[in-house]
């Protein structure tokens, strides 16, 4: 039972990471490797400001992550618009490494740690079953954020613009959608989502090093591609699937759990070969990207 809850909670966390990546991809066809560093910086901020009340500390982390996201857009990605996804992908790869090294200079290469929200590491008993508080809180946070994002995307003007821009940015602009502002918003939201991921991760693992966000970002990237990168729903679903499978594999592979990633990557390759556009893609269309 705990295994299922763990899987759902990990899947949810990955879904949040995938959502942040998918949002930015939707508006500018950018696979943002540096999303990892947004997660990392928010974890750092939470560790450094651990003496403040949790909420304040989290809000600070969100703010920093959102600002960093916007900054990378302004300084780098904006100037690379229209050069093609491959160039932007490599640039984000470079930015990712660059930020990691900056963190190393600022925070040191060794992990910084602090017990963020220690009450969450406890466990409790319910109906004869044992649950950890953190997995329950994670699931609750994830559901809340997914609902909020669903509302934002489906019901607000900004969401409408995001959806329109993701299908056809040119026409959206012809209708008056301000490109810079919209892309900036997407980056800011992706930063906030990254900080939520950072929070969840830092509770589970309070050792923050410069590569802290890398693993989940790579796997979430894998997730959005298999889920179908052209829709946010697909991205979130793909992220969830990857996290869920990984958690289940970890539980049931026993000693072979170290190979969980191998199985996952193999599954990814197979899924891509069968459906290059992702699980949720409708047709086998020639790729736009």
């Amino acid at each position: 039972m705990q295994a299922i809850l763990d899987a759902i909670s990990l899947g949810g966390t990955y879904a949040l990471a995938a959502l942040g990546l998918g949002l930015v991809f939707g508006v500018m066809r950018l696979v943002n490797f540096a999303h990892a560093e947004l997660i990392t910086i928010s974890a750092y901020v939470m560790v450094v400001t651990n003496d403040l009340p949790l909420l304040i500390s989290f809000l600070l982390a969100s703010l920093v992550a959102a600002l960093l996201a916007i900054l990378t857009e302004l300084a780098i990605y904006r100037r690379l618009r229209g050069t093609g996804p491959a160039i932007m992908l490599i640039a984000s790869f470079g930015l990712s490494v660059g930020l990691q090294k900056s963190y190393e200079l600022i925070f040191g290469a060794l992990p910084r740690s602090a017990a963020v929200a220690p009450w969450m590491t406890g466990s409790f008993e319910f109906a004869g079953l044992n649950f950890t508080i953190s997995s329950l809180v994670t699931v609750a946070i994830t559901i809340a954020i997914l609902l909020a994002m669903g509302y934002l995307v489906e019901r607000t003007t900004l969401g409408l613009q995001l959806r329109a821009a993701a299908t056809d940015f040119k026409t959206a602009r012809l209708l008056g959608v301000r490109s810079n502002r919209l892309i900036g918003s997407a980056f800011a939201i992706s930063g906030i989502l990254a900080s939520a991921v950072g929070f969840i991760l830092v509770v589970e693992n309070p050792q923050v090093d410069p590569m802290f966000g890398l693993n989940i970002t790579i796997l979430a990237l894998v997730g959005i591609v298999i889920g179908g990168i052209s829709s946010l729903r697909g991205a979130a679903l793909g992220g969830f699937i990857v996290g869920f499978i990984l958690s289940i594999l970890n539980t049931f592979l026993g000693n072979a759990r170290v190979y969980a990633y191998s199985y996952l990557f193999l599954a990814v390759v197979i899924i891509l070969l069968v459906r290059p556009g992702g699980i949720l893609s409708k047709r086998n269309e020639m790729e736009r990207v």
């Binding site: 990633y261 191998s262 390759v269 070969l273 790729e287």
Partner: peptide, 22 residues
């Protein structure tokens, strides 16, 4: 893998690297 283009190719080759590394 050569059937894939663009991003799918990028991610699939990345998965290949990850698989061997793991």
């Amino acid at each position: 893998l050569m059937r894939l283009n663009g991003l799918a190719a990028g991610i699939a080759t990345f998965a290949l690297l990850g698989l061997f590394y793991n």
